[in-house]
Design a protein around this nucleic acid. Structure first.
Lengths: 217, 217
DNA sequence: ACATGTGAACTGCTTCACAGCG
DNA sequence: CGCTGTGAAGCAGTTCACATGT
């Protein structure tokens, strides 16, 4: 069995924790690739990723058999397989909604383009911002959002807007047919089931820290 | 039993997912507080937070009994209890390490000060940035980090630095005695067990989205 | 009657342990 | 012999269901 025998689409639902670890493994594999390293064992990947070798093997086994017994995994082959599994084999069009400071920080983030994410436009409702640029990306009027989406078919919307308008904008994004959202507004959003929404909530992360500080002994 | 009978410190280890949900409940309670609402049921909190009423009650039960049977929870009392549990009853001193775009976005984020987080300083190694300000906060030389920490005793360090230096800086933060870190570098960090580290990794979140887009049918 | 608090049942992720194969 | 791949066991978090208190 090799990497080409992995099922066309996974049969079971994959745990979010599994996908997160695949991302981590891929990052290490790319580091190893850069150094010309040929093979790697599940144990090495585990130690770098803060998990166990059994976990690494279980994670990969969901998608196929990628290793050689007694040897480990081919670094370039496993990296290629993981990129394919994670959907990184193609370009993804991204729109940023909200041309504030966080939007600007994201727009200039190099890791984006390196991984095939192309920011096609930014949107705002503030007339003073519309027509300007955000780190070289045109800021468009939110009013033209629906017609732009119909024409350009972006894959992912990044929401860097205030909390109070987040649900309303998410509904617009959903109606426009975009199926994936990365949300930076500190709001609990309700989306249709066929949509993928990831929320990055700094307030919540900070409260995780203060809880830990408060309850440590 | 009321909120004052909660154990001085939780006996079992609390699941991270529980703490995250407490944050969510608190956000809704504050919304209700603003509207002068007196009581709320576990079922209402559950629907807003995308969970179940049993989950809400289990989450709270770890810390004590806060509700009245047949009535629900007092909004202000439960909010106060949750703030206390999450460690939001006091001021926390924060330092930002890395005076780039993400650092700037965080420095101007209002949600910080509103919740008792005070940014006392920013640090960088770039001579052109040192001595300047980041959204009104002084940018200091990273060389003075250790002596500053000894003098000012900040509680939390926010890392907005490139991936390659992240582990090295985390080690310095750990040695300086800071026990909580919010990390924005896309790196898997290894920290001492008595430290709380939360990593916000955008690349990983995006890959979660492209995985979902790729494996949807 | 209504909604909480909680042991018991369940579900699903993780760890174990070893057979299988290079 | 070494390391993968994987059923089985273990464990943790969620859901159920109902006794309990107002």
């Amino acid at each position: 069995m090799n990497q080409f025998t992995s099922p066309a689409q996974p049969l079971k639902r994959i745990a979010e924790s599994t996908v997160r670890r695949l991302s981590i493994y891929l990052r290490f594999l790319e580091e190893f690739e850069g150094r010309g390293r040929a093979t790697v064992s599940s144990d090495e990947l585990a130690r770098r990723g803060g998990t166990t070798s059994a976990q690494v093997r279980k994670d990969l086994s969901v998608f196929g058999s990628f290793g050689k017994r007694g040897l480990g995994y081919s670094v370039p082959e496993l990296a290629t397989s993981l990129r394919e599994i994670l959907g990184l084999g193609r370009e993804w069009k991204v729109v940023i909604i909200g041309a504030g400071k966080i939007g600007a920080a994201l727009a200039q983030y190099h890791g984006f383009r390196e991984r095939g994410f192309v920011i096609v436009a930014a949107y705002d409702t503030n007339p003073e911002k519309i027509g300007g640029t955000l780190e070289g990306i045109a800021i468009r009027d939110m009013q033209s959002f629906e017609s732009d989406v119909t024409r350009e078919n972006p894959d992912i919307a990044v929401l860097t807007i205030p909390m109070h308008s987040a649900q309303e904008v998410l509904d617009r994004v959903a109606r426009a047919g975009i199926k994936a959202v990365l949300n930076f507004a500190p709001a609990q959003l309700h989306a249709p089931m066929d949509m993928a929404v990831k929320t990055v909530n700094m307030a919540m992360e900070l409260e995780g820290l203060t809880f830990a500080l408060t309850n440590a002994h």
